[in-house]
């Protein structure tokens, strides 16, 4: 479903600030795969997400979604295949428009926009049914402006908006990081339910190792622009936070040693 082949990305090339953001990334997701990505700051997690979503383009390598080469396809065209939820709860919705209007915009993600009314009676019933799946009572507040919702509600709505049109790829970029623990738990639970319900192919970045272990069927660890650890479905079931930490130490340790060896 998603294929990332030998992707390289360098920021500020040719300046003293040159930084290898992604180096030789190779990743394949089958239909229904749910991959969680962990890694420290600057590991390249977000850069990888941006390469998939089309916000930035790779220097070399290519990206394929559902067999279509999207390497240089502009962001808004690629969005036909991709659902996204951002870290900032404010980023995924339009605050001065109503819940219904926001959903109507999301409804058009896979379609060409026309001069038909965005919120017809028939469509409203459909959107209402979708909202009801969140169990937040938002279906009774269709005409409320989204700016009035709490961060958790907005993020739940963003998640719904990104998923109910069944995208080929779902990208979740630390989408629970800005929420308080109980809201984060709620959104995590919703994520699990929704991804299972639509069998979505998902790529999720998180800082929370426990969350990375609880969700999804595969896990990758990134550091300094590389994928340094990968666990498949069977391996992942036996992983714990401690095991991940030791694994991280082991790999980082040897890398550190080799660096020292080089300098010596």
């Amino acid at each position: 479903m998603l294929q990332i082949n030998k992707v390289n990305k360098i920021f500020n090339e040719g300046t003293p600030d040159e930084k290898m953001a992604l180096s030789n990334i190779q990743l394949q997701l089958k239909k229904g795969d749910f991959v969680t990505i962990i890694g420290s700051n600057g590991a390249g997690k977000s850069t990888l997400m941006n390469i998939v979503s089309g916000k930035i383009f790779p220097d070399t390598g290519n990206v394929q979604i559902a067999g279509i080469d999207t390497t240089t396809m502009p962001e808004h065209k690629r969005a036909h295949y991709i659902g996204r939820v951002f870290q900032d709860p404010m980023a995924g919705t339009a605050p001065n428009m109503t819940i219904e209007e926001n959903l109507a915009i999301a409804y058009n993600r896979t379609k060409t926009r026309t001069l038909r009314l965005g919120t017809s009676k028939k469509r409203r019933d459909f959107l209402c049914d979708q909202l009801a799946t969140l169990h937040l009572g938002l279906e009774n507040r269709l005409q409320a402006k989204v700016g009035l919702l709490s961060g958790g509600e907005r993020q739940a709505l963003s998640l719904l908006m990104a998923t109910f049109t069944e995208p080929k790829i779902l990208l979740l970029d630390e989408h629970t990081a800005a929420l308080d623990p109980s809201r984060a738990e709620l959104v995590t639970q919703l994520t699990k339910e929704i991804v299972e319900m639509h069998n979505l192919t998902t790529l999720m970045v998180t800082h929370n190792m426990q969350q990375a272990l609880n969700l999804g069927n595969r896990l990758i660890m990134m550091d300094k622009g590389q994928i340094i650890f990968e666990s498949d479905e069977t391996e992942k079931q036996n992983l714990t936070v401690e095991k991940l930490m030791t694994e991280f130490q082991r790999i980082r340790g040897t890398q550190f040693m080799s660096d020292r060896a080089l300098l010596a």
Binding site: S53, G83, F86, A94, N108, M161
Partner: peptide, 27 residues
């Protein structure tokens, strides 16, 4: 009426949250 059509909604959202409009496939 125009501002309630599919195009009109995308136009309003462009002035409200441009990044969000990108992620829902409108130019």
């Amino acid at each position: 009426i125009f501002l309630r059509t599919e195009i009109g909604l995308a136009l309003r959202a462009t002035g409200d949250n441009e990044g969000m409009v990108h992620s829902f496939a409108a130019n």
